[in-house]
């Protein structure tokens, strides 16, 4: 995913696991100015496909955090996973929403009291897997919003646990896992 005008235009790179069945993916991003948002996908054959949409927004990268920094640091790394049953009875695709507490500081935000820049501190790597089979992995940057949030569908294989591992720019590793909620029928 690319946001042309952002200081770091490559917002995130997602890799989708083989047979993971991920067909859509939603997240929240910072947009610094009026810009095209681009999704570029590489197929298994190595072709690149792009779609784009123009968004009118400004100041997203330097906008002050919603939460105060102490609170954000205290809850950092907490995760929540919501599982949604398949919407269509014909498919097995389940939907997951992963929420991670992390200030994801962009390095362009200022401390409201001292006016010093708050150093960049964000989730750099993320992987979601089921019983050691990769569903989705991400390499992120400063364009992913505070408290990163991802929603995507996937096809469950067996009843293994959902495992999540996130690594931030300080090298902190956050891990969590949840049992798969067997749905359908």
């Amino acid at each position: 995913m690319i946001i042309d005008v952002n200081p770091a235009p490559v917002a995130a790179t997602f890799e989708i696991g083989k047979d993971a069945g991920v067909t859509h993916l939603s997240t929240r991003v910072r947009v610094d100015d009026y810009s095209y948002l681009r999704a570029i996908a590489e197929t298994q054959g190595g072709e690149l496909h792009m779609a784009q949409t123009f968004v009118k927004a400004s100041g997203g990268c330097s906008a002050p955090a919603v939460k105060n920094q102490d609170e954000a640091m205290a809850t950092m790394g907490q995760m929540k996973l919501r599982q949604f049953p398949p919407q269509e009875t014909m498919t097995k695709a389940q939907e997951l929403q992963l929420m991670i507490r992390h200030p994801n500081n962009s390095g362009l935000q200022r401390n409201p009291l001292t006016q010093y820049f708050i150093p960049a501190h964000f989730v750099q790597k993320l992987s979601v897997s089921q019983a050691d089979r990769l569903i989705l992995s991400m390499e992120g940057g400063i364009s992913i919003s505070e408290d990163p949030n991802f929603r995507f569908d996937f096809t469950a294989h067996g009843t293994g646990q959902i495992q999540v591992e996130a690594i931030d720019t300080d090298g902190k590793v956050f891990r969590n896992q949840w049992p798969l909620e067997v749905t359908g029928l």
């Binding site: 993916l25 929240r28 948002l37 996908a41 927004a57 997203g60």
Partner: peptide, 14 residues
């Protein structure tokens, strides 16, 4: 048009 530039919901569908 984004309501909050710091939290723009975006969805890619493949």
């Amino acid at each position: 048009r984004a309501q909050d530039a710091a939290i723009v919901p975006s969805t890619s569908i493949s």
